[in-house]
């Protein structure tokens, strides 16, 4: 299977293509001659410039979904395009909520497998090979897709850098979504956005995360204060998200965000494999944990074996004193 054409699912949020999609478009350029995007929403023309700048020559526009969840209609549009022939050799999906839904449905429609949790993708004579990090990133698995194309790949954020190619705006081309019947019955009736100040968790230069070692929900205020002082974003382990201390949008790890800041500061986090997957590629890692055998120390550049309730307040005090 030669790889000539790759399609990338371009998700749009706040009027812009998400970074994870731009990463995939950038990387796809090194794998295939032709890279095209697939998008939906009210105004795809508005993002055609950015998509083109990163290397997509065409953006296939499924159009406005009138409140439907994207999974069923976008998968149906993609399936129809593949079945009509002349479609892509591979389709790349960012590992977002909607990306996973669309990839899963498309896989079932086309009766082709979808490879998930991909962190690397390379082309070789026989087609495409994927890399997957397992056991918290301690081991890398390389898998080769043996099926008939197109290969479907769901790729984790920050697996590749997003680099503009300087291309002109992508040409917008309508992609018809066939009738999806009952599968397309779910409707969004209201949206709720959680207030958040400061940089976004997955874009911040500094991330300060708290875990169960904080002891109680109200102690998370320390993490927020420290993050603000460092102009960073507060993050969390899943343990305290599940416990309801902080919203899910703060979660770092396998099921949460992937972060790669200049500094990741883990406070009272054990370093379970599922947490490590989300932060292990940070440039520098500082960990505070009272247990010197905590796995987080295996990835820390600086590890402080100590009590978060002593170290963090002192750190806040010192930073405040510096002004």
């Amino acid at each position: 299977m030669a790889i000539d054409k790759i399609w990338v699912l371009a998700e749009v949020a706040d009027g812009k293509p998400i970074t994870a999609s731009l990463e995939l478009i950038s990387h796809a350029r090194s794998l295939a001659e032709t890279v095209e995007a697939v998008a939906w929403g009210e105004d795809t023309a508005a993002v055609a410039g950015t998509l083109g700048e990163y290397g997509a020559t065409v953006v296939h526009d499924v159009g406005d979904l009138s409140g439907a969840l994207p999974g069923a209609p976008v998968a149906a549009a993609l399936a129809a395009a593949v079945e009509a022939g002349g479609g892509p050799d591979a389709i790349l999906f960012p590992a977002t909520y909607d990306g996973r839904d669309i990839a899963g449905r498309l896989s079932a429609k086309l009766d082709r497998p979808v490879l998930t949790n991909v962190v690397g993708l390379s082309a070789d004579d026989g087609g495409l090979s994927t890399q997957h990090a397992i056991f918290g990133g301690q081991q890398n698995v390389t898998a080769h897709f043996t099926g008939e194309g197109p290969g479907l790949f769901v790729i984790r954020a920050k697996s590749f850098p997003a680099e503009p190619s300087g291309g002109g705006a992508a040409e917008v081309s309508a992609l018809e979504a066939p009738d999806t019947g009952a599968t397309n019955a779910a409707r969004i009736v209201a949206r709720h956005v959680e207030e958040r100040t400061g940089p976004k968790l997955d874009e911040a230069d500094v991330v300060v995360s708290g875990g169960r070692g904080l002891g109680q929900a109200d102690q998370y205020a320390l993490i927020e204060e420290l993050a603000t002082l460092l102009k960073g974003a507060p993050g969390a382990s899943r343990a305290i998200v599940d416990a309801g201390w902080v919203p899910y949008s703060h979660q770092v790890g396998q099921t949460g965000k992937t972060v790669k800041p200049t500094v990741y500061l883990a406070c009272g986090i054990s370093g379970a494999t599922q947490h490590l997957v989300g932060m292990k590629n940070s440039k520098n890692i500082v960990a505070i944990n009272k247990d010197q055998d905590a796995p987080i120390f295996t990835v820390a550049d600086l590890g402080i074996v100590g009590d978060v309730h002593k170290v963090v307040p002192k750190l806040i005090e010192t930073l405040k004193a510096r002004g």
Partner: peptide, 21 residues
């Protein structure tokens, strides 16, 4: 329709400095 062609240890992060507070 996929085959695992290789399993290898990931590059380990260089050991950092661990100090007791």
């Amino acid at each position: 329709r996929q085959e695992i062609t290789d399993v290898s240890a990931a590059d380990a992060r260089q050991a950092g400095e661990i100090v007791v507070d």
